[in-house]
Amino acid sequence: MKTWIHLLCAALAFSPALSLAEEAAGFRDLFNGKDLTGWVDVNTSPETWSVKDGLLVCKGMPIGVMRSEKQYENFILHIEWRHMEEGGNSGVFIWSNAAPAEGANLPMGLEVQMLELQWPYINREKDGSPKPLGYVSGELFGANGLEIIPDNPRGKRSMSYESRCKGKGEWNTYDVVAVDGVVKLSINGKFVNGVSGSTYRKGYLCLESEGAEIHFRNIRILELPSGMTTPEQTVPVLAPPGR
Rank of each mutant, 00 (worst) to 15 (best):
M1I: 01
L7V: 05
L8G: 02
C9H: 14
L12I: 12
A13F: 14
P16R: 05
A17K: 10
L18D: 14
L18R: 15
L20V: 04
L20T: 13
E23A: 03
R28D: 05
F31C: 02
G33M: 00
D35K: 07
L36T: 05
G38T: 01
W39H: 09
V42T: 11
S45P: 05
T48A: 05
S50M: 02
S50A: 08
K52E: 12
K52M: 03
K52L: 08
G54D: 03
L56W: 04
G60I: 01
G60S: 09
P62M: 08
M66Y: 05
R67F: 15
R67I: 12
E69D: 10
K70E: 13
Y72P: 02
Y72S: 04
E73I: 08
F75K: 10
L77D: 01
E80P: 00
H83E: 01
M84A: 07
E85W: 10
G87C: 08
G87A: 11
N89A: 10
W95H: 14
N97M: 06
A99F: 06
A101H: 12
A104H: 09
N105E: 15
P107H: 12
E111K: 13
Q113R: 10
L115K: 06
E116C: 05
E116G: 08
L117M: 00
I122Q: 06
D127V: 06
G128S: 11
P130G: 12
K131H: 13
P132F: 02
G134Q: 05
Y135G: 07
V136F: 13
V136G: 07
G142F: 03
A143T: 07
N144I: 14
L146G: 07
N152M: 03
P153L: 13
G155N: 00
G155I: 13
K156C: 06
S160H: 12
Y161S: 12
E162G: 07
S163R: 15
S163E: 11
G167Y: 00
K168H: 09
E170I: 11
D175N: 08
A178H: 07
V179G: 04
S186F: 07
K190W: 13
K190V: 02
K190S: 11
G194C: 03
T199W: 07
L205T: 10
C206K: 01
C206F: 03
E208P: 00
E208M: 09
S209Y: 06
E210G: 03
G211Q: 12
I214Y: 02
I219K: 01
E223C: 09
S226A: 15
S226F: 11
S226D: 15
G227N: 04
P231K: 08
V235T: 06
P236I: 13
V237A: 05
V237M: 00
L238W: 08
R243K: 15
